[in-house]
Design a protein around this nucleic acid. Sequence first.
RNA 1: GGCGACGUAGCCAAGUGGUAAGGCAGGGCUCUGCAAAAGCCCCAUUCGGCAGUUCAAAUCUGCCCGUCGCCUCCA
Length: 485
Amino acid sequence: MPLQLYNTRTRRAERFQPRREGQISIYVCGLTPSAQAHLGHARSFLFFDLLRRYLAFSGYRVTYVQNVTDIDDRSIEAAHRLGVSWREIVAGYYAEFKRSMARLGVREPDQEPYATDFIPQIRETISALIERGYAYVASDGIYYRVGKFAGYGLLSNRNIAELEAGARIEIDEAKEEALDFALWKFAKPGEPHWPFEPYGDGRPGWHIECSAMSHALLDPEGTGFDIHGGGADLIFPHHENEIAQSEPLMARPPMANFWLHGGLLLFDNRKMSKSLGNFEPLSDVLDRHDPQAIRLLFLRTGYGKVMNFTEEAMAGAVATLERLRRDYRALHAAASGADGRVTEGGALTARVVEALDDDMNTAAALREVLAAASAPLDGDARERLSELRTLLSLLGLEPDERWLAAPVERPLPEDLARALRHEIGEPWLDGVEDARAALDRVINERLAARANKDWSRSDRLRDALARCGIDIKDGKEGSTWSVVR
RNA sequence: GGCGACGUAGCCAAGUGGUAAGGCAGGGCUCUGCAAAAGCCCCAUUCGGCAGUUCAAAUCUGCCCGUCGCCUCCA
């Protein structure tokens, strides 16, 4: 079965066909770095990363563009509040976002255009819209005339009359109609601005940068590109407005054949927001949880579905990942560590491909991979290993050194020596300042106690270590320790 | 008010006409000085509710209830 994808534009799953044989162009709406990114962003970009990987895996040459809307009201506001330039605000948040994406194993886009690097193209687009009657100049900016575009509302399945009846849009005196939106905002004192003759200095409105940049980078002929993506909250008004800005100027619409939207992530059944008090920066989440476990968690839910995040579900993903790594390690050992052999077209691969062809059913794909990893070995371990490795990296779960080394050695807590002295309070620990040295002494002391069958002393020492974040496991082969916090 | 999505065990979630995957949590057992880890086993006669279609419904239809999202900045 060929690849089927749910297309927001037609509201059904359709067979995916690239516009040009073997090549696929994707434009995904990236971040507006005027605040810290959160886990919801991660879910969205993780999905588009997977889509890229799968299309490349399927043999397509993929061009993936993800923009940066580096100018908007909030970053200007934040700059004023903090007394720094808006560029610093944007650079800071974007750098943090990039670090988080790297930790999640999200590949860098082929191009990351910044809105403010495309001011000439933005001006050109606006000028063309004015010429054709789709835009007009008002006192405080240049607006798009929504009533002029017959296709308005098709993507988001709304009609103009209903939108107007919504009446939640503030009536701006400068605009002709409530639904009209800004293409260009004339500069107010103290705001960043760029020249735009003959209309007036100002800055681009939100939406126009995507029309200008996707045209410039993916569709210079104006005949459209393959896939346009983003979070479900961008369907209206952002993507609707992009279409309205782009299609009247195109030689042959539609702007994009496929519109793909990632489902929103909820926390406590609410969209994450600072005002609700459920906001946590992505970088903090990544400090608390293994990025691969986060990726695995998202793989278990359909990409387009609303998903509720809970720490319980996260813990489940961590446990699944640990088991997967263990299984992989066992397989690696069975194969004597041999790898590098490429096995193509195995039965497992066929099942994974079938799952992903069905509108990127990652839950089914993951299920196959997990089952294969834990199934008893009935054939060639080396073949199983290389096929598994290929599929794991297709899913973005690269088997790295952690997969082969157990237990994971995390850095020892900084104040371990002091904490142990405090917990144990025996003279043989006096003066030991080094964490590792203190740990070794306690472990040796405990081993001695165990050799003497002094179980109560042994248990006391184990409890003390546990309170200091060190987990001890006794087995037939001796004792092992690991850092649990 | 308009548009849309969803409602499957304590939690997350797969499954879209053929008789309820999986994970986490929980319970039991094996192992162990004990604990943990690991392994094995158990854990929804039932899919928000009520009607209907059908030989057959979690899956289709209708109505109702509930939750969430978008309609304003938003991945």
